[in-house]
Amino acid sequence: MERITSADEVPEQGSYLFTVTEADGSEEEVILVRLSDGIGAWKNFCQHEIDQRLDRGVGNGAAIRDGEILCPKHGSSFDAETGYCDNGKAAGSTLAAVDIAVNRGDVFLTDDDLTFAHEGGIDDGDMPGSTSHLSF
């Protein structure tokens, strides 16, 4: 179990961005979001277009409205609790979940296939930014 951050650092609206290392050595971004009864973790990409980040690493993180995580490019919305999308180009898909636990006010990575790398996004510039014209 690796500590990611304090639960207090996960915003009420938006997301907390961090980077993990996959078993194959590649890096992936993950977002933490507030749920009705805790905190959830999802890999930071839209299921319709995997190079489209939900949290672009600026401002308050991913756009979240009425319990839905919004894709900034096409506007598909994913239920923050389940990751499921029932609209837009990503309809019928589900965000990739990451296993975490909250204990004594801290958030821990418990996913056996991932290793915590660092806070924030991937630093090497391989992940493209949003091409969105939407703003929230």
Rank of each mutant, 00 (worst) to 15 (best):
R3G: 02
D8V: 13
G40T: 03
V33W: 05
V107S: 09
Q13E: 11
D51M: 03
G25Y: 09
E81T: 07
A41I: 11
A117Y: 04
S26R: 15
D51A: 02
G25W: 09
D111C: 04
A7C: 10
F136D: 15
E22A: 10
V58L: 05
F136V: 15
V20Q: 05
E119L: 00
E49L: 07
E81K: 04
I39K: 03
C85N: 09
E2V: 08
G59L: 05
G83I: 11
H118R: 08
R3E: 14
N44R: 02
K89H: 06
F18Q: 05
V107Y: 05
G92F: 01
A23I: 13
I4E: 10
S132D: 06
C85P: 09
I50L: 03
M1E: 08
G120T: 13
V98R: 03
E9C: 08
V58Y: 11
V30K: 02
S132A: 14
C71A: 03
E22N: 15
D124L: 01
I50D: 05
D37Y: 03
F45L: 02
F136Q: 13
T115R: 14
M127A: 10
N60E: 14
Y84Q: 12
L95P: 14
L70P: 01
L109N: 10
G120A: 04
I64A: 01
F45A: 12
G125F: 00
C85Y: 02
G25F: 06
D123P: 02
L35W: 02
R34H: 09
A97I: 07
P128S: 03
S132I: 10
A117M: 01
T5F: 00
D51F: 01
E27W: 06
V10G: 09
G75Y: 00
M127E: 12
L109P: 14
D106C: 09
E12L: 10
F78D: 12
G59E: 08
D113Y: 05
I31R: 07
V10S: 09
N44D: 13
A23T: 15
G57F: 00
A117D: 06
T131A: 00
A80N: 06
S93G: 07
G105W: 07
G61M: 02
S132P: 07
S77D: 10
